[in-house]
Amino acid sequence: MKLKFIIGVLAFFTVLSCSSSDVSKARVNKILEKLNDHEAKIEVLIDGKDFYPETSVFQGELTVFNSFFRVSLFDQYRSNVVLAFGGEHWYKEKPIEKTVFKDNQINASVMIGRIKDEKKNLGEGYLMTEGHIKVISLNKEKAVISLTGKVGLYQMQNEPTQWNTLKALIVIKKPLFKMQDVKETDLFYQQ
């Protein structure tokens, strides 16, 4: 009887200790299973609507310097995401997090774009106007980055009433790195 009680209590606390980060890990692992090396999946919701088609597969690279970090990814439909941030030794504290401000795009910036009309070569692009970048995992096996906040179309950067909500997840399998002046042991970590 006592053994059943102890097992029951342990099971209860195990379930209770599961957090949203565990769900996030499962979601990330599910995405990684579908990707080839050096490929990325980017899930972007703007005002709750998918911005990229489910079939988008991104490729690109991560540029790492002592005072600068940049992710540049493109898909087969000429959509792209570019995020960048700076700061001396930006990689020292983990997880790596940056706040985005409209008036300080040098500190941190995010650009999200896609082609809307292939024949007219007409695109649609958003810049993050305020929000948060969180690098959840960064290593040779995967890079996982979440974005939350507000975005505005290029022409609406100074119109806060026209900004849209953003939630995004970037998952890259075995990312390609261009590194200079930063040791892997100082940079890499896992969720």
Rank of each mutant, 00 (worst) to 15 (best):
G48L: 00
Q180P: 04
F69A: 03
K174P: 13
K119E: 13
E97A: 12
A84I: 00
V15M: 13
K102D: 00
Q191T: 15
G87F: 03
K4N: 09
F68W: 15
E43G: 08
A168E: 00
N121D: 14
V135G: 01
K102T: 06
C18A: 11
D75M: 02
S72W: 11
F188E: 06
P95G: 05
R78W: 08
Y77N: 07
A108T: 04
I106T: 14
L138T: 00
G113N: 06
D47C: 02
E97S: 13
V82N: 08
D181P: 03
L122E: 15
W163G: 00
K150F: 15
V15Q: 05
V81N: 03
R114N: 07
K30P: 04
K41G: 02
K49R: 15
G48F: 04
F85Y: 10
Q190H: 12
G123A: 05
V100M: 05
F188G: 07
T129H: 05
L127P: 00
Y52L: 04
T185W: 02
N121W: 14
P160S: 09
S19A: 09
F12G: 08
D75G: 04
Q191L: 12
E130A: 10
F51V: 09
T99R: 12
T165A: 10
G60N: 00
I170W: 01
S146H: 10
K183G: 06
K30M: 03
F68A: 08
K116E: 09
S72F: 08
L153I: 07
K34E: 12
F177N: 02
I133E: 01
K34C: 09
I136Q: 06
G149F: 06
K116W: 12
V144M: 01
E33Q: 14
G152A: 14
N107C: 05
A11Y: 09
E141V: 03
Q105W: 03
V100F: 01
E33M: 11
G87S: 03
N164P: 04
K178L: 12
E93S: 06
I136W: 02
H89G: 08
S21N: 11
S109P: 05
N29F: 05
A84P: 01
I7M: 07
L147C: 12
V135K: 07
G8W: 02
K142L: 05
I170G: 13
N164C: 09
N36K: 14
G123S: 10
P175T: 00
S20T: 14
M111H: 11
I96N: 02
I170K: 02
F74P: 01
Q155M: 13
T161L: 07
L187V: 10
V71I: 15
S137H: 02
W90V: 04
K178F: 08
D47S: 11
F5M: 14
E54Q: 11
K183Y: 09
M128Y: 04
T129E: 03
I6E: 01
E43S: 12
M128P: 00
F68H: 12
L166E: 03
E93R: 13
Q190P: 01
I31P: 03
N158F: 13
